[in-house]
Computed example of a mutant assay.
Amino acid sequence: MYQRILLAVDGSQSSDLALSQATIVAKATGAEVKALFVADDSDAFFEVTYFDTKALMEGILAFGRKALAEAAGKLEAAGVRHTTQLVEKPVAPGQISSTIVAQADAWDADLIVLGTHGRRGVRRLLMGSVSEGVVGKTNRPVLLIRSEVEG
C-alpha cells in the first residue's frame, strides 16, 4: 500500500483539494506525505513589460514557502507525518512536471497527488498542463484532483 505520498502544491483551489485527498489516503494507509512546491519563473518571460527578475523570484519563493507552511499546518492538524520541500529551480525552465516526477523518483514515492485546473481550449494550449505532463512522464500511480473548470 502507499507509504510515501508526494503532494505537489501551488496554492490554488485544486491544490487545496489535492491536499485534502492526500490527507485522507495518508490517514487510511499510515503514509508519510511530502508536500512539494516547484518555483518556476519561466511564465514571466512571456510578459512584454519590464520586470525585476530577482524580485520576481523572491516573490515566487515567498509564495511557495507560504503554500508549504499552510499545507504543513493542515497535515499536522490531521496527524499526518509529513515533510515539505521547496524546489527553487525546475529541472529546466517551464518543466514543472518533469521536476515533480524527478522528485517522486528521488524520494521513491508510492503515489503522486496533485490538483488539475481543468483548463480547456486556448488557455490549455498556451499554459500547458502540469498534471498531464506528470501522468505522461511517470510510471508511478497518480491521483489527480480536479477543481471547477476555469473559464
Rank of each mutant, 00 (worst) to 15 (best):
G11N: 07
P141K: 06
Q13S: 14
I100Y: 03
L36N: 01
A77N: 10
G133V: 10
N139S: 14
M127W: 00
E58G: 01
A26D: 03
L143H: 05
D40H: 03
A35K: 07
L125S: 11
R4F: 03
Q21G: 05
D16R: 15
P90D: 00
K74W: 02
R146N: 00
E150H: 13
S131E: 02
L125Q: 12
D16Q: 13
A72Y: 06
L56Q: 10
V80C: 04
A72E: 15
E150Y: 15
R120D: 00
F63W: 10
A67C: 15
T49V: 13
T99R: 08
E148M: 11
A55P: 00
R120A: 03
S98G: 15
F63G: 02
A31V: 05
A35Q: 04
L17I: 09
S15E: 02
V38E: 00
H82L: 06
R119E: 11
R4W: 04
Q95V: 06
G30N: 04
K66G: 07
S14H: 12
F51K: 04
M127C: 00
P90T: 06
A22N: 00
A106W: 05
A72W: 09
A106K: 14
S131T: 13
V25K: 01
T84C: 02
G118Q: 09
W107Q: 14
A92D: 13
K34C: 14
A62D: 14
D10C: 12
S15F: 11
G79S: 04
T49Y: 14
S129N: 08
L86P: 10
L7A: 04
S129M: 13
I145L: 13
K74Y: 05
S98N: 10
L19H: 03
F63S: 08
D52M: 01
H117Q: 11
A77W: 05
